[in-house]
Amino acid sequence: MDTSSASAHRQHSAPPASAPVNAAEFLSFRLGAEEYGIDILRVQEIRSYEAPTRIAHVPSFIKGVVNLRGVIVPVVDLRLKLNCATAEYNDFTVVIVLNVHGRVVGAVVDSVSDVLVLSPAQINAAPEMNTTVDTSYVTGIASVAERMLILMDIEALMSSADMGLMDTLPGVQ
């Protein structure tokens, strides 16, 4: 490829001029009646749900492990972890394969909706609540047309001590 065509290619692959400055992309998914969003950069792939191999003496929200092309991947049911009323497995149930701190982890959700580009103006701060429920993983609430999207720090959630999925990282308590 000559340099002029390489230069032209770079110009065409730039983000569209209509993309908001500091916009971020989020994968939206459903857990029960609620819609959530996570940073698309943490998503490795989306797979149909297959029953994992159960492991004894793990919390109920850790469903087990699956073999993903030679990598043993722990599978967490986010519906159970986040105390959703029900966790039914059907044709829409999927596993979002995440890369968290260099480790591959699967997250079971009811369904995946789409990828949304959100500008900072569309994201409101997470409300502070006096509750025993840990809401520290909620980073904001986004308004998209008629939809409310709960934005999550999936990396922090999957790295939490109660998950037991990550080794202690340098500088992280």
Rank of each mutant, 00 (worst) to 15 (best):
G102C: 09
V21C: 10
D167L: 14
S28H: 02
H9T: 13
T53F: 10
V21M: 03
I123C: 08
A56M: 05
V108D: 05
E45D: 15
G37M: 03
A8K: 12
L80W: 11
A14C: 07
V95G: 04
I40T: 07
S4Y: 09
N22K: 05
T168G: 04
L78A: 12
D162I: 06
A14P: 01
Y137G: 15
I38K: 00
S60V: 06
G37I: 00
R54D: 04
V97P: 14
H12T: 10
V109M: 08
H12I: 03
E88T: 13
R54L: 06
S5G: 06
M152W: 05
K63L: 12
I55E: 14
V94C: 13
A6Y: 15
Y49D: 09
A56R: 03
P74F: 02
V138M: 14
G102Q: 14
A23M: 08
S111A: 12
N67H: 07
K81C: 15
G106P: 04
D77S: 13
E25I: 07
T131I: 12
A85N: 11
S143F: 03
V104C: 09
A87V: 08
S48W: 01
V133G: 08
G70W: 07
A145S: 13
D91A: 15
A56Y: 10
S13V: 09
L80E: 15
P20R: 02
E128Y: 11
P16I: 09
L82H: 10
N124L: 00
M158I: 08
N67S: 09
M129F: 12
S7F: 13
Y137F: 12
F61V: 05
M129R: 06
L98E: 07
Q11W: 13
S143D: 10
V105E: 11
S111R: 02
H57C: 15
T132E: 14
P16W: 08
V104R: 05
G37K: 02
R79M: 03
S48D: 00
E88D: 13
A142F: 02
T135E: 11
G70I: 01
N22T: 06
F26Q: 07
I55W: 07
G171S: 03
L169G: 02
S159F: 02
G164F: 00
S4L: 09
G64I: 04
N90G: 13
G164S: 10
E45I: 02
R30D: 15
D39K: 00
T132N: 12
V95E: 11
A24W: 07
V112W: 07
D162K: 01
R103H: 14
A19T: 13
A85I: 12
E146G: 08
S119V: 11
D134V: 07
D162S: 09
D110Y: 11
E155L: 06
D91K: 00
R147W: 05
V95I: 09
A24K: 13
L118R: 11
K81N: 15
T135I: 01
G102S: 15
A85T: 05
I62T: 06
V66E: 05
A87T: 09
F26Y: 12
N22S: 06
S111G: 09
V115L: 11
Q173R: 03
A17M: 03
I96T: 10
D153N: 15
N90R: 02
E45A: 09
Y89Q: 01
V108I: 04
C84Q: 15
G32F: 00
L149N: 12
D2M: 01
V108N: 01
I150T: 14
M152A: 04
Y137I: 11
T3D: 11
M152D: 08
N90W: 04
E50T: 14
A6E: 14
V73Y: 01
D162L: 01
